[in-house]
């Protein structure tokens, strides 16, 4: 067993920002973690170079999501739209940091979103993703949600309604992910769901017992769900079934497998907290 004796030190949390609603949830999660772990919050807005490139194409058209109207896509319009998004993202980051009295910074880079975030990962301990650049999937849970109360709940109005989900396989990074998920759930005053990949009931019970004991020491509890495998599709189904507010993910292969990460982000439907 590789249970951590102390919370892994987290000094810098990067959150990938854009104007989408899901990015608000990512910002909430990142800010909550920064507050819980007393880390610096770094906002990273990536001007998607692929969008810029698309806008330069002579036939480029944009179909409005709300209006379903097809219109000409101009480079200048795209640049202005991205700058505006960056301004809005910075404002939201500043507001979230001020509310929790966080140290923060904001960067705008141009490039491929995932690549840019991974570049920024150097020197960061956690990265929080909203969605992938080519994500076209967006679905929301029903508006009905549990009642809460207090300023903390209001501050984490997205996170507090649904559980924080993490994947726990007993590895050292899984323990780190559990600790991060626990800190986020405690800060947002929401529930914690632990997905445990296990081939059989015995293995599931053992890992559950380990994690439960660790949580009980911290006066916490969690819902445990057995996963029959660690494949992304299995994890994705479980996360969506739990209607997770955020997924704390520790897959060591993810940073290296951008295509897999992109696929995960495109279908996850909630922020992803990547524990490095």
């Amino acid at each position: 067993m590789s249970e951590p004796r102390t919370m892994p030190e987290v000094r810098r949390i990067v959150v990938a920002l854009d104007a989408a609603r899901i990015a608000e949830e990512a910002l909430e999660a990142a800010a909550g973690l920064a507050a819980a772990l007393q880390a610096e919050l770094v906002g990273l807005f990536v001007e998607d170079i692929e969008l810029m490139r698309t806008a330069q194409l002579p036939f480029a058209r944009e179909l409005g999501l709300a209006s379903a109207v097809l219109r000409r896509l101009e480079t200048s319009d795209m640049e202005r739209a991205l700058r505006l998004q960056a301004v809005h993202s910075r404002e939201r980051l500043a507001a979230a940091a001020a509310a929790l009295n966080l140290q923060w910074s904001f960067q705008v880079v141009r490039g491929q979103p995932l690549a840019a975030v991974f570049d920024a990962l150097e020197g960061s301990d956690l990265v929080v993703f909203g969605r992938a650049g080519r994500l076209v999937q967006e679905h929301r849970a029903p508006s009905i949600a549990a009642r809460g109360g207090g300023a903390q709940t209001e501050r984490f109005r997205h996170l507090s309604l649904r559980p924080i989900v993490t994947l726990f396989d007993g590895s050292e990074r899984a323990w780190h992910a559990l600790a991060v998920a626990h800190a986020l759930a405690a800060t947002a005053r929401t529930r914690l769901t632990v997905l445990v990949p296990a081939e059989d009931a015995g293995e599931f019970a053992r890992r559950r017992q380990e994690a439960r004991a660790w949580l009980e020491e911290r006066d916490s509890m969690a819902r445990f769900v057995q996963l029959l495998g660690k494949e992304m599709r299995v994890v994705l189904d479980a996360v969506r079934k739990e209607r997770a507010a955020a997924l704390v993910w520790h897959d060591p292969t993810a940073p290296k497998d951008r295509a897999a990460l992109r696929a995960l982000l495109s279908e996850l439907g909630c922020p992803l907290v990547l524990v490095s």
Binding site: D48, A60, E62, G64, L65, A81, G133, R134
Partner: peptide, 12 residues
């Protein structure tokens, strides 16, 4: 590629 823009979708 089917891509998301700030206001909608586009193909490239």
């Amino acid at each position: 590629a089917l891509m998301r823009t700030p206001a909608g979708f586009t193909f490239a």
